[in-house]
Design a binder for these strands. Structure first.
Lengths: 142, 142
DNA sequence: GTATATGCAAAGCATTTGCATTAAA
DNA sequence: TTTAATGCAAATGCTTTGCATATAC
């Protein structure tokens, strides 16, 4: 899907790579589900039990500041982190019951333009579509 | 724009109307900006200084549960509340600098369908488009 | 009159920060 | 060796809750 790994991209930016940061980067990758800081922490601990939650937050915030991942907060509850930003253009599929968030390939969705008359003086540089619905798990549970 | 007021709709649902709740409902109406609980509290206090923040939260949560307003959390920081949900179909214009959120009429944006093949087993019942950019105020400040 | 909303203050999460210690480069 | 990252624990900010009192219906 993507040619380079998150870790490689970060290293290229001159990022200092520690075992903790490696564990965080690896925890985020691969999945098309977006994890909370706490879930990242749990996963990172499976590899490096000494990773602290504070370090997870610090690391995630840096990655966001670099634009390598995005913080998304569509449902109540804690923030989630999207590692596929800027590399694979995509939109989101949100379960309104459990808050789970999946990616959708951008090619599945038409490009959108907002007419200048409706821009309220904004400049627009990204468009993001969220499909709200119910995920298979919650459908089964209902 | 809408034929009935938020307060009228709530009363029709058999809601018990108190001065505090009236103040919260009025604070939310009319605007195309989405307020935080704290901002709603400040506005409600201008009319009824004894309204407590706890009551504002309780009231907003009830309105959300009834589907009369929506909680939106696109940017870091506190939740914001969208009173125009379900009545005036619309999308969002988000300032990535200051987090301000405006409404855009749905007619300005084409309807979108997600192909079944890309639905990952979800049912989809709403589509929401967010245009990310920079608002006039932040442009001026830059 | 009765059920329900209120304010207050305390509790509960999510997230950030200060600081002494440790480790990457 | 230098500069920056770590863990811990305390602090902060947003939101919810418990409970005694007040009030809409």
């Amino acid at each position: 899907m993507s040619e380079t790994t998150l870790l490689e991209r970060l290293r290229e930016r001159g990022w200092r790579v520690t075992p903790q940061r490696r564990a965080v980067a690896v925890a985020l990758e691969g999945d098309h589900v977006h994890l909370t800081a706490d879930e990242v922490h749990r996963r990172a601990r499976e590899v490096r039990p000494e990773v602290s939650l504070a370090t997870v937050y610090n690391t995630l915030n840096e990655m966001v500041a670099m634009g390598e991942i995005a913080e998304v907060r569509y449902a109540p509850g804690p923030s989630r982190y999207d590692p596929n930003v800027g590399h694979t253009p995509h939109h989101h599929l949100l379960c309104k019951v459990c808050g789970a968030l999946f990616d959708v390939d951008a090619h599945a969705v038409a490009d959108l333009q907002l007419p200048v008359a409706d821009r309220h003086g904004f400049t627009v540089d990204a468009v993001e579509v969220t499909f709200r619905g119910t995920c298979p798990d919650c459908l089964a549970a209902a």
